[in-house]
Design a protein around this nucleic acid. Structure first.
Length: 355
DNA sequence: TAGGCCATCTGGTCCT
DNA sequence: AGGACCAGATGGCCTA
């Protein structure tokens, strides 16, 4: 439970009055700027109070605000310490309010943008449910785990159906979220999901395969519960169906490298990661220090042979081997990544910055 | 009802 | 000076 230093009602008024706030509220200037219905409680009052008491201390038209140390119930409130508060003129109050209202609007807009980005992230997570939305913190944790797990898959050839993959995904997640992820990964693609994938991959502007349903990941597990579990969102892999070929020879072709292009769709995590690997000639000595058994390319083969068959209709132009998932298995970490603290996310961020 | 999550307001700080 | 970013504070909503 979040600790609330002040009660919702009543006890706050003592503080407010002791700070000499009430006089401003009386003249009505405290309400005019808060067009937002979310302007709740006393919080804003306190901030405004402190602001009024500090910002304009060097202004003319000083006016003492003493004499109102009596609480709303008539009791004596403790005297306010520090410099005496000066009353603002109407004009100053209006200016201040206008500035504050503008800043609030910007902040709202900024947070909405942040939430939009978070929602985009949710949609490319391995489990996405409109009905059971992941919380912000869980979304970030799952994203971290997901990148990590995918990298492990690339490096080790571990199957995404394995228990280990699930464990990596669920590491540090709350029990409900873990259950959600587990449910998602064990559910076979539902007809609804297939439709969704069809929409995503075949829809206009997605770079899909002409409306072909594609090859959604299959996690056969008949008889498992349906919702509230979300559905397995395999689109993060299916997105790559639009992949035109390896990008390693031309790093600038990677979206991530061309400044900050407008985000108009889910990214393809393997592309983002693999495009930044350095070409590996020999197995890295560090690789042997890993805890997993390296089977380079195994999983890439598995995935790609299942989902990117070499065909003229739906396969990758150069066969599975041309896919970044496969290619990436031949790449290794940059040497400047601190190995102790290695996680795939470190790799991504450190390399992204160097593009 | 406690606890978790969220949206919002706010003041401070840094940057352009 | 103004905007972006951040963290703290607060109240509302929802759920176990």
């Amino acid at each position: 439970m979040m600790t609330k230093p002040f009660g919702k009602n009543g006890d706050m008024s003592d503080l407010v009055s002791s700070l000499g706030w009430l006089e401003e509220e009386e003249d009505g200037s405290s309400q005019d700027g808060d067009e937002s219905p979310e302007m709740r409680g006393h919080h804003g009052l306190i901030h405004s109070c402190t602001e009024l008491g500090s910002e304009d201390m060097d202004e003319e038209e000083e006016e003492e605000v003493d004499g109102d140390d009596i609480g709303p119930n008539g009791e004596n409130a403790p005297k306010r310490r520090g410099p005496k508060k000066k009353k603002m003129t109407k004009a100053r109050q209006e200016r201040f309010r206008a500035r504050r209202v503008k800043a609030n609007a910007r902040e709202r807009s900024r947070m909405h943008g942040l939430n939009d980005a978070l929602e985009s992230l949710r949609r490319v997570m391995p489990c996405y449910s409109k009905t059971q939305k992941l919380s912000k913190i869980e979304t970030l944790r799952l994203a971290h785990n997901y990148i990590w797990a995918l990298s492990e898959v690339l490096e080790s050839g571990q199957s995404p159906e394995s228990h280990g993959f699930m464990e990596m995904l669920c590491k540090g997640l709350s029990q409900p979220t873990s259950n959600l992820v587990a449910g998602c990964l064990q559910l076979g693609p539902s007809p609804m999901m297939l439709n969704k994938l069809e929409d995503k991959c075949g829809g206009p502007g997605v770079g899909g395969m002409g409306g072909q349903a594609g090859h959604p990941l299959s996690y056969p597990s008949p008889g498992l519960p349906s919702p509230p579990y979300g559905s397995l969102e395999a689109s993060h892999l299916l997105h790559m169906k639009g992949f035109k070929g390896p990008v390693y020879d031309n790093p600038s072709s990677n979206e991530c490298s061309s400044g900050t292009p407008p985000y108009d769709g889910p990214l393809t995590p393997p592309l983002s990661i693999s495009g930044n690997f350095a070409l590996k000639q020999e197995p890295s000595p560090r690789e042997s220090e890993r805890n997993f058994t390296p089977h380079p390319g195994h999983h890439a083969h598995y995935l790609l042979s299942h989902h990117y068959p070499t065909s003229t209709t739906g396969g990758l132009p150069g066969g599975p081997q041309s896919h970044p998932l496969f290619q990436a298995s031949r790449y290794e970490l940059p040497l400047d990544v601190a190995y102790d603290s290695f996680t795939p996310s470190h790799l991504v961020t450190s390399q992204m910055g160097s593009i």
